[in-house]
Design a protein around this nucleic acid. Structure first.
Lengths: 144, 144
DNA sequence: TATTGTTATACTCTATAACTATA
DNA sequence: TATAGTTATAGAGTATAACAATA
């Protein structure tokens, strides 16, 4: 098995960039008294209304962890629960207006924080990078 | 401020790929009873011998958190402490042979786990993606 | 005085197990 | 019986504060 081939170099780059992005998102989350996972859930809820179990499965968390996470976010008025119309056992999770506003603010902060990094690429390179990342990103399994 | 411009699309791709990479690394860490941060530290120690305070600063952790993290890894024989030759206050952190072996195994597992994703690109695209990521990645501040 | 590191303490995040309600 | 969710409990990761040793 050859080392330092194109897969290794790519893996290294992906891992480094991932840690950098995560560092920024973790800092921004913390500045708003949120965990990274809560930030991620808010991002998902922007355009989905999943049930608890789907969220847990997608995030790789236990359902009990989901309960606690949504509890804490709900207590702060960022998410709410609603009964699922089709299954009386299920509970849907929704983002509130306040949650949506906070999410947009945090994503704006992320963009600002990463501007020095992404700004090292010109317009064409940015589009190219985004396109090359597309096939790498696992198509998210449908929620719900 | 225009939305959905090339910076937004790129940010979205970077964030998604980061969560995907982190998911893989978190799972692999957990399968070896390690935290993601411990995996990261092991990766750093492969070719550095930083002092506690430098590691903490680089990772954005408190020095007390560093103490605990190194404690737990040392208890498992993956890292060791050694006095810094130049500063009697300082403590260097070193990877052990066992730690190095485990680290290489985990990185191999990461490569395998991500092969389906990176495999969607051909050789030239992989090299191109790695090159485009390079300017985005913050040059790591020197440790020590 | 300032820096390096450890220890004591408290809080958050997480999973496991036991439980209730519904399918 | 199996699935969806909550609650009680325990372990790991984290930061703050107080401390000892060295610069």
């Amino acid at each position: 098995m050859p080392i330092d081939d194109s897969e290794d170099v790519l893996l290294d780059g992906l891992v480094r960039s991932a840690f950098q992005i995560m560092g920024v998102l973790t800092r921004i989350s913390a500045e708003h008294d949120l965990s990274l996972t809560q930030l991620r859930v808010l991002g998902i809820l922007r355009d989905q209304r999943p049930r608890m179990s789907d969220l847990a499965a997608f995030l790789g968390l236990d359902k009990s962890t989901m309960s606690g996470l949504v509890d804490r976010a709900a207590r702060r008025g960022l998410m709410t629960r609603a009964p699922n119309p089709a299954d009386k056992r299920a509970v849907d999770v929704l983002i509130t207006d306040a949650g949506r506003q906070l999410t947009e603010r945090m994503y704006q902060e992320a963009r600002t924080a990463l501007a020095p990094a992404t700004g090292r690429l010109d317009e064409q390179q940015r589009r190219q990078l985004a396109q090359l990342l597309q096939p790498v990103i696992t198509p998210p399994p449908p929620l719900g």
